[in-house]
Amino acid sequence: MNVPWTHAGLPTISLPVGSAANSLPLGLQCVGRFQRDEYLLAWAAGLAEVLGMV
């Protein structure tokens, strides 16, 4: 579901955050401001660390 954001020129990243009760994967989609790709990546790396994904 990143396509609408990408077409708008906004950076996106999806992070896996676990599994639902039925074992299907859950993800968190993060969208950054226009031309702030590096900021989004740095923020997502910190978020991944807090969520215990690294």
Rank of each mutant, 00 (worst) to 15 (best):
M1C: 09
M1P: 15
N2G: 13
N2H: 15
N2W: 12
N2V: 13
N2Y: 13
V3Y: 05
V3L: 14
P4F: 00
P4L: 01
P4D: 00
W5N: 05
W5F: 15
T6A: 12
T6E: 04
T6G: 12
H7G: 10
A8W: 04
G9M: 03
L10C: 09
P11M: 01
P11D: 00
P11C: 02
T12E: 00
T12W: 03
S14A: 13
S14W: 09
S14K: 05
L15F: 04
L15A: 05
L15N: 01
P16H: 08
V17E: 04
V17T: 13
G18L: 03
S19M: 11
S19L: 13
S19W: 02
S19Q: 11
S19I: 09
A21M: 08
N22Q: 12
N22K: 12
N22E: 15
S23Q: 14
S23C: 13
S23N: 14
S23P: 05
L24Q: 12
L24Y: 04
L24V: 08
L24W: 03
L24S: 11
L24F: 03
L24T: 13
P25F: 00
P25N: 01
L26I: 10
L26D: 06
L28W: 02
L28V: 04
L28H: 01
Q29C: 09
C30V: 10
C30L: 15
C30H: 03
V31F: 03
V31P: 01
G32H: 05
G32C: 08
G32V: 07
G32P: 07
G32F: 08
G32M: 05
R33F: 10
F34E: 07
Q35C: 13
R36V: 06
D37H: 06
E38T: 08
Y39Q: 11
Y39P: 03
Y39D: 14
Y39C: 05
Y39H: 10
Y39W: 15
Y39M: 10
Y39S: 08
L40M: 09
L40V: 10
L40I: 11
L41N: 10
L41V: 13
L41D: 04
A42L: 10
A42T: 09
A42M: 12
W43M: 12
W43C: 11
A44M: 06
A44T: 06
A45R: 15
A45G: 08
G46Q: 12
G46T: 04
L47V: 11
E49L: 11
E49A: 15
E49C: 08
V50C: 07
V50K: 14
V50P: 03
V50N: 06
L51T: 02
L51S: 02
G52Y: 03
G52E: 06
M53P: 00
V54F: 07
V54C: 09
V54G: 10
